[in-house]
Design a binder for these strands. Structure first.
Length: 273
DNA sequence: TTCCGGGAAC
DNA sequence: GTTCCCGGAA
């Protein structure tokens, strides 16, 4: 699909007009250090802004640098992560901090391809970090951007592929002010999602979440929560505390261990380091 | 009580 | 293609 230059310019104006009146204030828009941007973008993966804000503030206060984060016990990081969900991200974040300290002298690399080699950093997050921390005109997509473009350029289309949207992002990007442009575009997209039925449902990549109740995700969260409270627990303790069948618990303990979220010592489990 | 939303790794 | 969380809304 192609669009006229006029249409693209109109869209830019619309987005900037919206932003000048309704820009959202967020703590990670106040401190623009590579570290603080990095933390915020990882927290914002699969997690809504409202839920991230308070966690972000505490996290940055306790761990103000890659160095302090790299040196921290995983237990402390997971404690602050509690409530954000997808705890694997905290493990990957810890590993990334160690790599940045040991391999890059504590200085976050400023190019997208290198960032993507870090655990837990994929193309979207790498792009957003480069745009917001370094104000470089990279092309990236995330849910608010997707919603904005689907609403304005693909009104009655279903199954729109990100590839198509990426080229639109590239030609609408304000290359002189990428950071401000992406802030504006994301604020506009967030508004569109609230005002209309989420346009991202018409994305080819939209997926419907399976039930949480009774899921492994729920059980994993319970296991971690209990281990964070009690230092260490046996499998029998966990069967009672998590109210779960032994075989299901066993499978999840094995997975959590493989992913580095818990460790086993004889018949007791704990948070590593 | 169920539904909903959001990136990366495997 | 499938698996990771959590809490607010419906």
């Amino acid at each position: 699909m192609t669009f006229s230059g006029h249409r693209l310019v109109q869209f830019q104006k619309k987005v900037y007009d919206y932003y000048s009146l309704h820009r959202r204030k967020m703590p990670w828009r106040e401190i623009l250090s590579p570290y603080s941007i990095f933390i915020s973008e990882v927290m914002l993966q699969q997690t809504q802004v409202e839920r991230v804000i308070s966690k972000y503030k505490v996290f940055l206060h306790v761990f103000p640098s890659f160095k302090s984060l790299a040196a921290a016990p995983l237990r402390d990081i997971l404690s602050l992560w509690s409530g954000l969900g997808y705890n694997r991200r905290a493990v990957w974040l810890h590993r990334s901090a160690k790599i940045i300290v040991n391999k890059y002298q504590g200085k976050l690399p400023a190019d997208q391809a290198t960032l993507q080699m870090l655990p837990g950093i994929g193309p979207h997050t790498a792009g957003s970090i480069i745009a917001f921390a370094y104000n470089k005109p990279v092309v990236f997509i995330e849910t608010n951007i997707r919603s904005a473009l689907l609403h304005d350029f693909y009104k009655n289309k279903d199954n729109v592929h990100d590839k198509e949207l990426m080229s639109l992002i590239e030609i609408t990007l304000d290359k002189d002010n990428p950071r401000t442009w992406y802030w504006a575009l994301m604020d506009y997209g967030s508004y569109i999602k609230k005002k209309f039925s989420n346009p991202s449902r018409r994305s080819k990549h939209h997926i419907q979440q399976k039930a949480f109740h009774g899921s492994n995700r729920q059980l994993r969260g319970r296991i971690l929560k209990n281990l964070l409270q009690k230092v260490k627990l046996t499998k029998d303790d966990l069967i009672v505390l998590c109210d779960v069948h032994p075989s299901k618990l066993q499978n999840n303990l094995k997975d959590l261990q493989r992913e580095g979220l818990i460790s086993r010592d004889g018949d007791t489990y704990s948070i590593p380091q």
